[in-house]
Each structure stands twice: as structure tokens, then as C-alpha cells.
Design a protein around this nucleic acid. Structure first.
Lengths: 247, 247
DNA sequence: CGGAGGGTTGAGATTCATCAACGCGTGTGG
DNA sequence: CCACACGCGTTGATGAATCTCAACCCTCCG
């Protein structure tokens, strides 16, 4: 059920996202002129690998994954996306069919911004094209982290690192947080089977004695519980860095 | 021994590279004004993880790798770069210390273009900023391929896929090509040990009977030898696609 | 109550890394 | 010209990590 969007509410909620940062109302209006809000149900495929990339997807609510399919049809999750994040950002500029698929992993509300609008605004507004370059650079960095995660680390470290980043992405003034995605989804994202993910969670709880997990609820015994999963890149976003000297 | 560069020769040789495509002489001149050519020996580190990203490296000759370091100090290779390619492209726009290192894996000649020159030109020339966005999008795609390679495929498929891409990157009118990097380097890039790489090469030769490898020389018995390692993304750059119906 | 989906647990199979040894080509010093 | 060492690649034996397959549990929901 496509519908129009209220610009002011939208700006108020999302003006700090990477895509929209520093844009003025006129610019956002131009960007959204031809955009539509669509409702998607769990499991719905918004775009398949090989489709034409006609629009950028901005998540107003719910969760999406970007996927790639292997030779035997296995599907892996490249990025897990929640509210305020977007995808197809880079694909729009690739000048070829989409190398990724996009799928809803929960009932979601998605804003579709036509690629044409993106390209038009990027030529008119240096602020926006600056946002784009920085956003692409950021995703590129993220995917490098993902590469060395999968290449260097064993399953336990990958799980620990995921927990750490989930913790740091939250409030950090509490030692409690909630996994935002289903465990099978996270396992896939981390490049392991659900069974392995489960075993690693258990091992982290029993061996390290510093974390307890019930369902999606994760509790740290203290804010340094996950420090040994940290790395140089992540250290910089950790509030404990200074006081505790984690290096 | 830093030295200046001859603009005309440079343009003639490299005007088809992703970074410089469609640029006119004035733009290239502006870009190179403050640039320097440096000679680096094998193993020399041009930049370390965590250093400030002050310039982009454009490879005039030789070979570089971009690296990341794991917790136990293992070094993995993210990209293998030859003549006409560049690195630190994305890092310049990340607004933080470099998450990657850059190292010469052979005696090389490298053009260092100050990030400031890049930023200045990208504001003056929409052609150039367009190049940047496309280049970033391209690298992002490449790193996605790398992620699902490591996540989905087993060692043998990864090696086969690497061979396939090396073949397609070459002339394609001959069934013979040469590995451009040392086998230990390729193994690292593919996320496996040199021993495993060696075994997989052997297996591909014996089991598939369609490829023979001596040292760095690879010969296919026919142009379809590596087809079973192909995937949807790669199919599009294969010249055999139409006639042979590889899908 | 019964079934389905997500998660967990266990046992066996498989893939890959590790460790150690060796071959081969190249360069170097005697 | 030979002896030797070194880098690179290969081979074999072993072990660890992870996948696979199967069973089972728990919760939610009709």
C-alpha cells in the first residue's frame, strides 16, 4: 500500500542519519518528491540479485537484510539493517544490475527513493554528494571489518565481537542490551551455522563468566566484560577507553 | 628518491583507469601538481594501520597490497594491486585514521597524490567526483564478492574462482595466462594457508582435468575449463557467455 | 491439545590448519 | 666451480574447528 510521507516528521526523526545529515528542508523535499512508503511483510523480497537498481531503500521501521546467493543457492546476509539505515546506496552507482538482494526479516515500513532523485540531488547539492562519498567510504570500511572478521577470527571471537559492537551501539550507561535480530539471522551474518552460534554463546557465558544471555537479553557483569574481543578499530568508539585503559 | 612526473606520458598511459577516466589535461595537471613519485623496495611499508591518511597511492609500476592486522598480529591481504590501480582511495574520505596498511610486495614505483589535491579537485570537477563515487561503489562491490567468497565457498571453489577471474581479466583470446602475484600472497588474499592453496591447485588440475599449472603459468584445455567456478556476477564479464550458454 | 518455528544439544564426518620434512631454483662466498 | 643457504612451493601426517544430521526442548498460537 504505497503512500506519501510527511516531510517534517521525517526530517525531525532522521536528520542525523548518514544519508541526510546537514541537508536543509528544501533538499530533503526534493529528494523525497517522488518517493513512496511501502509496507513489507516478513520474508518479502524487495529486490533480487540481478534486478535493475531503481531505488534506494530507507528503513522507516522494521528490519531488512542485504543478501548474496552462492552457487548451490545458499543465501548469506551481508548487512543487517534496522530503522534509519538504508541500502542499495552503493548499487545505484555501480552501473550494472544489482549484485545483492534485499529482503525483509520482519514486518517493515520502507521508504523507496528513486535512484534518479538521488542522482539529481547529488549533482545539485555538494552537501549531499559529500554525504554519499562519506557513506560509501564508511560502508567500504565496514565491509573490510567484515572481511577480516571472517578471515582472521574463529567463531567464538566473531560472536564476541558482535556482542561487543551491539553493546557499544547501545546506551553504554547500562550493562544490558537486547539482540536486535533473530539468532539464525545473526549466525548467517557471522558466517556460521545456528548450531555453532548457539554453542559459542554458551561457551562465552560459561568460560568467560562475564556475560549472561537469556533469549535475546544480554547482561554483562561489568562494562569491561567484552573487552577481550575488542580490536584497534573498535577501541575508538568505546567510552571506557580512557578510564579503564583497555589497550 | 622522490621525483616529479611527466604529465603527458602519464595521461597517455593511465587515462583509462577508474580514477582518471574522462579527466582533461588541466584537471590531471591540477591533481598532480603536488604529487611525487617514490621508489619502494619489496616489503616496504608505505603506511601502517592507524596512520594518518595523507595521500592516495597510484601504482606506476610494481605491486602493492592493502593489509589488515588481526589480534594475534597475523596480517591479511585485502586487495592485491598492480600497475594502474590505486589505494587509500576510500580511506581519504573516512575522517579517521587509516584502518588499513599498505605494503609493497615487489619493487615498485608509486605516485603519491596528496589527499588535499584529491579533495580540491573533487569540489571543482563533477567529472572527478563522479569518478570517485563510482570507484568507491566498485570497491564496495568487490569487497562484497570477497565476503561471500570467504563465507560461502570452500577453498577449492575460491581458488577456482580466483583463476577464473584472473583468466577473464586477461586477453580471453588465448587459453593461457600468468598469475600476477606470488602464490603465498594469493593464498593469504583468499583466506587460506599456502599449503591449502597448493593442494587445491593440484586438485583442480587432477580432478577437473581441464587446467594445467606450472609455476605461475596457467593453461586451460579450453576456454570453458573454469566455467563451473563462475557465478551470476562474473558471468556478465565473460565473452563466452552468449555462444556457450554457460548459465 | 497439537503443531510450527526457533533454539539447543549430541555424535560423527569433513574441512582446513598445523607441524615437519623435503625439493627445487637462485644467488653468494669460498 | 662447488658448497651452501635461502625463499618458495610442495607433500604427508596429525589434530582442531566447524559443519552435518538427528533428536529434542520450549514457547507461542490456533
Amino acid at each position: 500500500m504505497p503512500q506519501k510521507i510527511n516531510i517534517n516528521t521525517f526530517i525531525e526523526e532522521f536528520n542525523q542519519t548518514r544519508l541526510l545529515r546537514h541537508l536543509n528542508t528544501a533538499e530533503v523535499t526534493l529528494l523525497l518528491e517522488k518517493s513512496l512508503v511501502v509496507d513489507v511483510v516478513e520474508g518479502e523480497q524487495l529486490i533480487h540479485e540481478g534486478d535493475e537498481a531503481t531505488s534506494l531503500f530507507f528503513i522507516l521501521d522494521g528490519a531488512l537484510v542485504t543478501t548474496r546467493t552462492g552457487i548451490q543457492g545458499e543465501e548469506i546476509f551481508i548487512r543487517l539493517l534496522g530503522r534509519g539505515e538504508c541500502c542499495m546506496d552503493a548499487v545505484i552507482f555501480m552501473e550494472e544490475k544489482s549484485p545483492i538482494g534485499v529482503k525483509a526479516i520482519g514486518h517493515s515500513s520502507v521508504l523507496k527513493i528513486p535512484s534518479k532523485s538521488i542522482k539529481i540531488l547529488s549533482e545539485k547539492s555538494t552537501t549531499f554528494s559529500n554525504n554519499l562519498v562519506k557513506m560509501l567510504a564508511h560502508f567500504y570500511k565496514e565491509s573490510m571489518l567484515q572481511i577480516d572478521n571472517v578471515t582472521i577470527k574463529d567463531s567464538k571471537s566473531r560472536v564476541g565481537y558482535y556482542l561487543l559492537r551491539a553493546y557499544l551501539a547501545g546506551e553504554q550507561n547500562t550493562n544490558h542490551f537486547v539482540l536486535k535480530f533473530k539468532k539464525t539471522v545473526i549466525a548467517n551474518y557471522l558466517g556460521m551455522k545456528p548450531e555453532t552460534f548457539s554453542r559459542m554463546l554458551k561457551e562465552i557465558q560459561t568460560k568467560d563468566h562475564a556475560v549472561t544471555i537469556h533469549g535475546a537479553e544480554v547482561t554483562l557483569t561489568d562494562s569491561n566484560s567484552l573487552c577481550h574481543f575488542c580490536d584497534a578499530t573498535t577501541k575508538n568508539v568505546c567510552l571506557n577507553k580512557v578510564d579503564k585503559g583497555c589497550g
